[in-house]
């Protein structure tokens, strides 16, 4: 867990140091893709706590979900339904909260806080 928190902090520090900024045109694409990435990471944490983690599933899920999310936004832009990105946001948002709840419960079990 500590290693994961350190990795997240390292990523944030790298971002702050490199002064990279997302161009305005790509803001929505990357935003939704990032939601998908967060969801994939939480899913990975959940799986690892459950003991069913498979790195191939995680890596492929991470890549596919982020690309798919950006693609949905792109398609929405092209076919004139700009709000299509909302579908991705809702789907990934729900999954994220779902995963978060499971992770929380599993952590309770691991730390012996469960009644």
């Amino acid at each position: 867990m500590l290693a994961l928190a350190l990795a997240l902090a390292l990523g944030i520090t790298l971002g702050l140091l490199t002064n990279v900024s997302v161009p305005l045109g790509l803001l929505t694409y990357l935003g939704v893709a990032m939601l998908a990435a967060i969801d994939a990471c939480l899913g990975g944490v959940k799986a690892s706590l459950e003991g069913s983690f498979d790195d191939r599933v995680f890596v492929s899920g991470f890549i596919t979900n982020t690309l798919m999310a950006a693609f949905i936004v792109f398609i929405g832009d092209r076919i004139g339904v700009r709000e299509l990105y909302l579908a991705a946001v809702v789907a990934f948002g729900m999954r994220t909260f779902d995963n978060l709840g499971t992770v929380r419960r599993l952590l309770f079990v691991r730390w012996g806080w469960e009644r």
Binding site: L8, G11, L14, L30
Partner: peptide, 11 residues
Amino acid sequence: GLMLVGFLLVA
């Protein structure tokens, strides 16, 4: 994965 998420978050 988390490092990537952190980097993208800042960008």
